[in-house]
């Protein structure tokens, strides 16, 4: 019963409000008023907004991909440690979460700006100075950094469950390292990989702090757009419509993930 109340207050009512707002007209000083309209929904399909959505998907997708490229080997390396060192390594992975998200993002500004360590370092070996801050690359870097622990943890969990005998069996049957990775390790840890990718992709897609701080004005993402509708343009209905667009996209992705998970459960334990 408490779970139901929880769901109602934190999920059903807010979602209902967002859906309702998306079909109303904006009030003069924020808020909403009648009459009901489909204008907000049709406005979503203007090229300007679709472009922002597309570039947000690309940014979040790239961040997810890079997080996987780094996170998978990291998770694999952790499983090879002794049990007590595994605990140490896992604590190290989640340690950044002990510091405020904003402060960590500000730290990247210091690292990336023209007088920062990265630029100075590259200058020493004759490759700088360069401007990384306030570029799209900085946004992707920031997103990757912020959510990579959420990639490492589920992959680590699924690697832990994997029977190491299977890798030895593949080796014994003549499979080299790359084939073992491709035919055994990757498919059998796919549920963890997909979960990790969702955990990185979903918060990256709606993020507006990192594009603002590390991207400057140059790299708007859909999150910034939504925030601006509510706080600057005072157009709550259109902000709600944009939110629904993001939500719809995520629902589709989560459904794909669920069907992939069903397939892997068929293999049995």
């Amino acid at each position: 019963m408490p779970a139901l109340v929880y769901l109602l207050v934190l999920m059903v009512i807010p979602l209902g409000l967002v859906i309702a707002y998306a079909f109303l007209t904006s009030g003069r000083f924020g808020g909403v008023q009648g009459p009901a309209t489909l204008d907000n929904i049709t406005r979503l399909f203007q090229p300007l907004y679709l472009e922002v959505l597309a570039s947000s998907v690309v940014n979040a997708g790239l961040a997810t991909f890079i997080a996987f490229l780094i996170g998978f080997p990291a998770a694999l390396a952790i499983t090879r440690l002794s049990l007590s060192w595994q605990t140490v390594a896992l604590i190290a992975v989640v340690m950044p979460f002990w510091t405020n998200f904003l402060i960590r993002t500000y730290a990247w500004i210091l690292l990336l700006n023209r007088e920062g360590i990265l630029s100075d370092g590259l200058a020493l070996i004759g490759l700088g100075p360069i401007e990384v801050l306030y570029t799209r690359e900085a946004v992707i870097l920031g997103l990757t950094y912020a959510y990579i622990p959420l990639m490492v943890l589920p992959i680590y969990a699924s690697l832990q469950r994997l029977d190491s005998m299977l890798l030895e069996a593949a080796c014994n049957l003549g499979a080299g390292p790359w084939r073992r990775f491709r035919t055994i390790l990757l498919p059998l840890t796919m549920p963890g990989i997909i979960t990790g990718c969702l955990f990185v992709f979903i918060p990256s897609l709606g993020n507006f702090v990192i594009p603002e701080l590390l991207g400057g004005g140059n790299s708007q993402m859909i999150g910034n757009l939504i925030r601006d509708q509510f706080l600057k343009s005072r157009d709550w209905p259109f902000g709600s419509a944009l939110s629904l667009l993001v939500l719809a996209l995520l629902v589709i992705i989560v459904m794909l993930q669920a069907s992939a998970a069903r397939r892997s459960r068929k293999w049995g334990a």
């Binding site: 299977l166 069996a169 035919t183």
Partner: peptide, 18 residues
């Protein structure tokens, strides 16, 4: 090990579940 003309049948069989 992957190039030895020796094959091993594992105690747990280690069949690929997928």
């Amino acid at each position: 090990p992957e190039r030895r003309a020796v094959n091993l049948m594992f105690q747990s069989y280690a069949l690929f579940p997928h």
